[in-house]
Write a protein that binds this DNA or RNA. Structure first.
Lengths: 134, 134
DNA sequence: CTGCACCCTGTAGTCGCTACAGGGTCAAGA
DNA sequence: TCTTGACCCTGTAGCGACTACAGGGTGCAG
């Protein structure tokens, strides 16, 4: 009655069915009980746990970090320093990626800004990829 | 005399040896002649082509796009509209990624800003990952 | 002639999914 | 009752762009 099929869980969380099975194989989501017909039968705890995973993935955490966060989230009494450290690491990683991409964007915009719709021989974009300007 | 070993080429371009061989397998870099001892013997054309590939990779172009850019770069007389389109697509992709990462950064910063170094039970970060605040 | 740095091929692993293939289950409609 | 079709199951292979071996060959300096 109150259990969910894997398809139900997928619809409710926005995580594809295949990905849910993948998380189970990777040990992120506990194996749910099965019905007579060998279908997975999820309960509310599973939905909460999967929502946690999805939120963490949306913030770019890797599966190893999420495993650690889930472990930490289960130990209510411990100080949250480790959680903090994981979030800080993730923030640093995100900032590094933003910096890389921002440099790429500037170079691409500059290339496109100099494009005079010439032939390839005079093309500023090709020229820069060749290394004429650095 | 004027040929380069794969290691020389790697040092001069900053592209690892294994990656050079990978680009050859993928058809991005033409197969060079071999020495008697079956070593690859590169010439200046290879170095220029590899530098072009590296520059394109640094701007985030995928290998398929680079293959197209290399083909276009070889036809000097044709208009550079296609080059322009590839660069525009790449810029759009980079901007999409920046937008995603910027949203992640904001949320992570906000989470960390609210962290009061509590126990996990009261941890703002864990709380948000659980979905308390949206 | 021996050691060492370098080179060769081929294959498997990384991350986080995604896409089958080849089957089983189940509820609704004819 | 039968059949259709949506859903579910397992297991395996593929993606992109490398990276890391294993197990061997080459070439040069001391």
């Amino acid at each position: 009655m109150s259990t969910l099929s894997i398809g139900d869980l997928a619809r409710r969380t926005g995580v594809p069915v295949e990905t849910i099975r993948y998380y189970e194989r990777m040990g992120l989501l506990p194996k749910p009980p099965r019905t007579e017909g060998n279908y997975r039968a999820y309960e509310a705890t599973h939905e909460r746990r999967l929502a946690f995973i999805k939120r963490s993935r949306d913030l770019g955490f890797g599966l190893d970090a999420i495993r650690a966060l889930l472990d930490l989230a289960d130990g209510a009494d411990r100080p949250c320093g480790e959680v903090d450290a994981l979030a800080r690491d993730q923030l640093a990683e995100v900032e590094r990626k933003i910096a890389d991409l921002t440099a790429m964007r500037a170079e691409l915009q500059d290339m496109l800004g100099h494009c005079r719709n010439d032939t390839v021989a005079d093309c500023e974009i090709i020229g820069r990829l060749r290394g004429a300007v650095e």
